[in-house]
């Protein structure tokens, strides 16, 4: 029925259509307003904000707040800007996302195609892990990290996010692979492919859509995490979110709102980029033709 996919279920006249679009435009505007405020205020001198014109476009356009937020703003005790913490976040997010996605894919593969006694219980426990509130594990996790010597380090943070991420990534891949025809795996077994060869040559090439979903989800969650970052990092391993908080909360001197706005945008930019870039690959139909229908 793909030819009907664009047809609407309910017949709409021009009048109701106008109302719908106007409403949608209003919602859109409302939703985008904070972004507008942030962008506009990050591009004007502090004096203009202090004079009151929050909603106005800048009289004088300037990139100075951005430069300051990136490299010279006071974070905690040192005037390093957000730059080092941005890299902390990158170094934390990339391995955490990559490893949790790969492990999730492997888990999903095993839980659907190499089933064993008790596999549903294991899957249930993994799922349960998704729903344990972060706060509950703070103290045991701190103790664990201390014991293995990862406390206050970036690898420690990677480990924490990895453990939390596996539950979700397993859920995604397991549900996706459930739909994946088992006959393909059986055919590959008869063809002589082993466990990892089947995974690499047959499963992974067809996992594009779910991998993108998983990466977007993990990246957003880990990048935006504040609690674990604040709890388990030292000053030199703080992620971007914690540094942004420190920038905004710095009590010395005047509040440089324009710098804060610039910093906040910087902190949000990578997740935005991931959506824009990866969303393009979020297409269906990669599985077309492997089996009937």
């Amino acid at each position: 029925m793909s030819s009907n996919a664009t047809a609407t279920v309910v017949r709409t006249g021009a009048g109701s259509r106008f109302v719908i679009y106007t409403l949608l435009a209003l919602f859109c505007l409302y939703y985008l307003l904070p972004l507008y405020v942030m962008v506009v205020n990050s591009l004007k001198p502090l004096s203009e904000i202090q004079a009151g014109g929050m909603m106005a476009l800048p009289d004088v356009w300037t990139l100075a707040p951005w430069k300051s937020a990136w490299s010279t703003a006071q974070i905690g005790v040192e005037a390093t800007g957000l730059r080092p913490f941005f890299w902390n976040s990158i170094v934390m997010v990339v391995p955490a996302v990559a490893i949790s996605t790969v492990l999730g894919a492997l888990n999903g593969y095993v839980l659907t195609k190499w089933r064993f006694r008790g596999d549903t219980i294991i899957f249930g426990l993994l799922l349960f892990g998704c729903f344990i509130p972060f706060q509950m594990v703070l103290i045991p996790m701190a103790r664990m990290l201390g014991l293995v010597g990862l406390a206050g380090t970036v690898p420690g943070l990677v480990f924490v996010h990895l453990v939390y991420g596996i539950g979700f990534s397993t859920l995604y891949f397991r549900n996706y692979y459930q739909q994946f025809p088992t006959e393909l795996v059986r055919a590959a077994m008869i063809d002589g492919a082993g466990f990892f060869t089947i995974f690499r040559r047959i499963m992974l090439p067809s996992s594009g859509p779910i991998a993108v979903v998983c990466v977007i989800w993990q990246f957003t969650n880990i990048w935006n995490d504040f609690l674990f970052g604040a709890s388990f990092s030292d000053f030199d391993s703080q992620p971007m979110t914690v540094a942004l908080n420190n920038l905004v909360q710095s009590s010395t001197g005047v509040k440089e709102y324009n710098v804060h706005f610039a910093g906040a945008i910087m902190a949000a930019l990578p997740t935005l980029l991931v959506y824009i870039v990866a969303g393009r690959y979020f297409v269906r139909g990669l599985m077309a033709g492997s089996v009937k229908g």
Partner: peptide, 29 residues
């Protein structure tokens, strides 16, 4: 193991590997 039995199987759903072309499908084994 199935691979060592020197058998070949044709499945109801054909079970062709969707990411490989016909030639690659044929010689995968």
């Amino acid at each position: 193991r199935p691979a060592d039995r020197n058998i070949a199987m044709v499945f109801q759903s054909y079970a062709l590997y969707p990411n490989m072309n016909v030639g690659q499908n044929i010689v995968f084994g």
